[in-house]
Every structure is written in C-alpha cells, then in structure tokens.
Nucleic acid binder design. Structure first.
Lengths: 210, 210
DNA sequence: ACTTGTGAAGCATTTCACAGCC
DNA sequence: GGCTGTGAAATGCTTCACAAGT
C-alpha cells in the first residue's frame, strides 16, 4: 500500500528541512524558495524540490513554499504529530543524559520508562521517572504499548537487552552501545555509534596533509 | 597529493570493519575472508574486498586477510594510531557523559579540556579534568595544539562556540547541539544530531501500516 | 578448491535544464 | 521575472563475474 519508492536519503533530509523551516519561521519568514532551503543545508535546490515533490505538490510556482503549512506536512509525514512512548535501558551517564535531552521532548518523543539491572540505581528518580529493575521491563512495556526501545548499556549487555526488547513487542530499537546488535523479530534497528563520527574526522585529518 | 577518489561510504565502513575484526580477534580468529566480514555487517563480500583494495592489497588469494595486520592497517588509515587531543565545550549532562564515554578513550581520543560558561560549574573536577571558563579556551587550546572541538552546549550557543573554536585553531568540530552550525574557516564540521535517527524511526513506523 | 582484486554491468541518487504556472 | 515540478543526463556506489594467485 505504501509507495516505498522514496529514497532513504530523501527521508533523512526531511528532518533537516524541518529544522531549517522552524528556524526561518522564528525569523518571521512566511514563504521560502527551494534555493533558500538548499543554501542552509548542503545540497542543491533541485534536490529540495524533488524531495518535497515525492510527498505532494506543496509549493506554488513563481512563489515558493509556505513555511507554516510545510512544517505541518513534514511533521505529519515523519509521524511527529503524535507522542511516541520510549523505554530506555541502561541508567548510566549516557542513558541519563538521553532521558534529560530536551531535543527528544521537543519532537514528541517521551521516555516514559527507564530500566537498569544495578540494585543501587533501582528506585531512584530521574527527571520524574523512576528507575526500575530491568526484569520488570517485559511486563511493563507490553502493558503500556511502548513502541521504541533505547539501549544505553555497556557494549557487552547490548545484544541481550535487544533480544529482550524485541520480545517485549518493541517495534524499533535505537542502540547507543558501541556493539552491533541483531534481532530476529521484524524490528527496526538503528545503531548510533558515537565514535564513528570521530573516527571519520580522524581519517580526514590524517589525509589533509598533517 | 592525497588520492581523494575513495568514496566516503567506504571510509565509513572502515570503522565497522575495524570493530568486527577486533571482535573476531577476541574469538581467536587469525584469518578472515571477505565473506566472513560481510556477513557480520550488512553488505556483500565484493564490497569488502573493493573497500580494502582501495588502500592496498592486504589479502592473500586463496587464503583471506590476516586479522592482526589488518587491524593495524585500518587503525593507521583512520589515524587511530596516535592520540588526538579534544576540547569539549558545554559541561551539561550530555557533555559530561561524553567526557566519561569509554569508547573515546579506547580509540585514543583524549578529552583533555572541558569548558563551560556557568560560574557554578567552573573549577569542578570531572573524570580528572577541571571544568574551565570558556573565556580561557582560546588561549589554552592554541597553546596545547588541540585538534578537535566537541560542542555539547544548548542549541542557541552552538554557533558562537563554533566560531570561537574555529578561531582557536581547531581543525575539526563535532557538534552535538541540535542546531546546524557553519564556519568560514577551513574546518571539518560534523553534526551529530541525536534526534535525527529517532525521527527516521518515527517515519518508518508511520509507514509500516500502523 | 578457495579466495582476492578488479573491469564491466547494474542500480540509486543527484544534478541539469526546461516546460508550465503565478 | 521568479519559482516549482519533472523527465533526461550525469554522477557515484554497489554487485556481478571472472581472471589470477596460493
């Protein structure tokens, strides 16, 4: 039913267009051209038009795109117009920083449950959420229909947690642990490896003379 | 002088090969084939061979690639065989989590300076590093030849910090703030937007029926 | 027999260029 | 005049298929 002919690269840029539009809106802009959008991101104007045209003719010829309606359209396309419940496993420094991260709330992502396996952490409150025993996660997550799981454990625990999350009926997993995970269930898995970008930088520094 | 004919996609995979090889080494493997490597990542064997061949004939026909030498080669290509000094600006929850992140140390990235502009944070110790006034950053960074800057401030401060880092002679900037930054100087800028992946997940959940 | 290295083919994405509309 | 939407061309990346080496 869904037309999956849309390039993944296009979908990734949608989020960037949304950010850019929100900034332009704050500056009071009512209408933007594809050229306006393209010069703030690093791409060509034709790319912007083609990307947006995949989802419908949002623009007006001779004029451009209206900022406010386009923001709404993009939010709807990205599914950001409704709240998504998230459970996070691993209440270490990184995990707790993610729970407090304002960028998630701003996009309607709500980390409503936090789990850990360390007795000394269980029961504590963080950002209004109680840290619970990971053993309870299966039941809680099924009952509350939590869609997304975030893994912020040490690398060696990541695979086990991933399998647990998958069994608990999660539809997507975001893995911040520096270990590749694989799941048999039909779950969307995204690995967010914080060192990858640094390694990439290191490579390019190495090449640029010295 | 540098042959820049190497696809960026290849460079990104190099880091993944390195991780995979280190795991295989722990399992006691001495030699691997391109097929071994490809099935752990999600790519084809020919891709692995082509990627590695860009940098030299590391493999032996009929046999495969020796694990230990290949790990060394990849580290050298990625510039991970020497320590890189990093300064982090923004001692909030995310910033401090990054300072403590073990994955960076493991790859020879050393966050040797931490800066903030909040008086109540300045002077505190974290992971053995003193949090310093961001006003001192220019002088300190130039003196210590710090190559990489990490921005972990709120979004509204990111652009200003980026310009400051660029003037302080940094060669690359990793921006964790949810705001696009741009710098005039010839600096490598990488935006690591933690919400991008979540938004991508949200899009795909939206498409997969409900 | 097994596995690399690589030109050639195939596929995906980006850019060009222009018709169509405001 | 300015700007979108879109086929067609160009570019870039991946996969195939096989010669060559061990």
């Amino acid at each position: 039913m869904a037309k999956t002919l849309i390039p993944e690269a296009t979908v990734k840029r949608l989020s960037l267009y949304l950010r850019c539009l929100e900034r332009l809106r704050e500056d009071g802009r009512k209408v933007v051209s594809s050229t306006d959008l393209s010069c703030h991101l690093q791409t060509r104007d034709a790319q912007v038009r083609k990307d947006l045209a995949y989802f419908g003719g949002f623009g007006k010829r001779g004029l451009g795109y209206e900022v406010e309606p386009l923001i709404s359209e993009l939010k709807s396309i990205l599914g950001l117009d409704r709240t998504r419940k998230i459970a996070l496993v691993g209440a270490g420094k990184l995990g707790l920083a993610l729970v407090a991260y304002p960028g998630f709330k701003r996009r309607n992502f709500r980390i409503s449950r936090v789990f850990d396996n360390a007795a000394r952490k269980i029961g504590r409150l963080w950002e209004g959420v109680e840290i619970q025993d990971v053993e309870l996660s299966d039941r809680v997550m099924k009952k509350e229909h939590i869609e997304i799981g975030i893994i912020a454990t040490p690398g060696e625990d990541a695979q086990g947690v991933a399998e647990r999350l998958a069994k608990a009926g999660v539809k997507a997993i975001l893995n911040f642990a520096p270990t590749r995970i694989s799941v048999s269930e039909p779950v969307i898995v995204k690995n967010v490896d914080l060192t990858l970008e640094l390694e990439n930088v290191s490579y390019h520094l190495n090449r640029a003379d010295v």
